[in-house]
Simulated assay, not measured.
Amino acid sequence: MSRQIIATAQAPAAIGPYSQAVRAGTTVYCSGQIPLDPATGALVEGDITAQARRVFENLKAVAAAAGGSLDDAVRVGIYVTDLQHFAAVNAVMAEYFKPPYPARSTIEVSGLPKGAQVEVDAILVVG
């Protein structure tokens, strides 16, 4: 099975030795997105809600570049630096996903790149 590397200028460029996403067959593995502005590469300003919206916008752009959408997500991983943000991130996620929701994990971590408060990765199955 061949791999197709997914890249788009509509999401931040990778800040390490990885691809924004890799497609293998109909499965797309999206790398974690942090709340970076794709135009500037800077961390967005604002609270956890603003950061979560930017993360999901970035993930949405990567999904589109892979020929899919967030509706194709079968699994989402959320990493937050403070589980007190759980409800706020859930509220933003509900703006981007509709039932039936993908499987998901939410994990508190001690830190994220560039001082982000939230990071999200996903696995999609695209037609």
Rank of each mutant, 00 (worst) to 15 (best):
R53G: 01
G46P: 12
G111L: 01
F97I: 05
Y101M: 04
V44M: 08
L124W: 04
V125E: 13
K98C: 01
P35V: 09
A63H: 05
L59C: 03
A42I: 04
A94N: 14
T106N: 03
A42N: 13
L70E: 09
Q51V: 07
P99A: 11
D82I: 09
A14M: 05
L83P: 10
D71I: 00
Y101P: 04
Y18S: 06
L36H: 12
K114R: 13
I48K: 06
A24R: 13
E108C: 00
V44Y: 12
V22F: 10
A73Y: 06
M93G: 13
A9Q: 12
T8V: 11
E45L: 07
Y101T: 03
R53Q: 09
A91T: 14
A73P: 10
V55E: 07
R53M: 01
P38G: 08
T106C: 07
V109I: 09
A14R: 05
Y79L: 11
A42W: 09
A64K: 10
V74G: 09
G77C: 02
T26A: 13
F97H: 08
P12H: 14
V62G: 02
K60F: 01
G115D: 08
Y79G: 03
A65H: 11
A52C: 03
Q33F: 07
V120R: 01
V62Q: 03
V22C: 07
D37E: 12
T106G: 00
P12A: 14
P17F: 07
L124K: 01
K114E: 14
D37N: 15
E57Q: 13
D72N: 15
I107K: 05
Q10I: 00
D82C: 08
P102Q: 01
A61D: 08
A64R: 11
V44E: 09
V22I: 15
T8I: 10
D37I: 11
V80D: 05
A116D: 10
V89C: 06
F56E: 02
L70D: 08
L43N: 10
A65W: 08
R75H: 15
A116I: 08
F56S: 00
P99G: 03
